[in-house]
């Protein structure tokens, strides 16, 4: 599979990473190199196989553990917001959100 500049721009937008025009060409060639590598997967016959999401699923059955419905997290606003680039009155500030 070959990545074209338009694909790359679309993916960069999807991933919210600004890519300058100067970065575009080298990035495209690097990603195409990576895709050359991962395209080796296409030749493998995997018919009838379940995708393996959790590695231990190969040997044993692991269901998800559930938590009791209890309030265990108390207000830590000050500590939790200490790293905020911009905040005021307990709110994180961002450029205006448009809807």
């Amino acid at each position: 599979m070959e990545l074209h500049p338009d694909d790359l721009k679309r993916i960069a937008r999807l991933a919210r990473i600004a890519v300058s025009d100067a970065e575009l060409a080298p990035l495209q060639s690097q990603l195409n190199g990576i895709f050359g590598l991962i395209d080796e997967l296409q030749a493998v016959d995997t018919k009838g196989l379940e995708p393996l999401a959790h590695p231990l699923d190969v040997v044993q059955h692991l269901p998800q553990r559930l938590r009791d419905d209890k309030i265990t997290e108390l207000d830590q606003r000050e500590a939790n917001m200490a790293n905020a680039p911009a905040s005021e009155n307990g709110l994180f500030l961002v450029p205006k959100v448009l809807e």
């Binding site: 938590r67 419905d69 209890k70 309030i71 265990t72 997290e73 207000d75 830590q76 606003r77 939790n80 917001m81 009155n89 307990g90 709110l91 994180f92």
Partner: peptide, 27 residues
């Protein structure tokens, strides 16, 4: 109508001061 959030132990009570029910996990 649970007491805590779906993936964290924060309260879901309505009307709290902003971000006082936002744990490290929720953030």
């Amino acid at each position: 109508s649970t007491a805590s959030k779906i993936f964290s132990g924060s309260s879901i009570a309505f009307g709290a001061e902003p971000n006082t029910q936002a744990s490290a996990i929720d953030l």
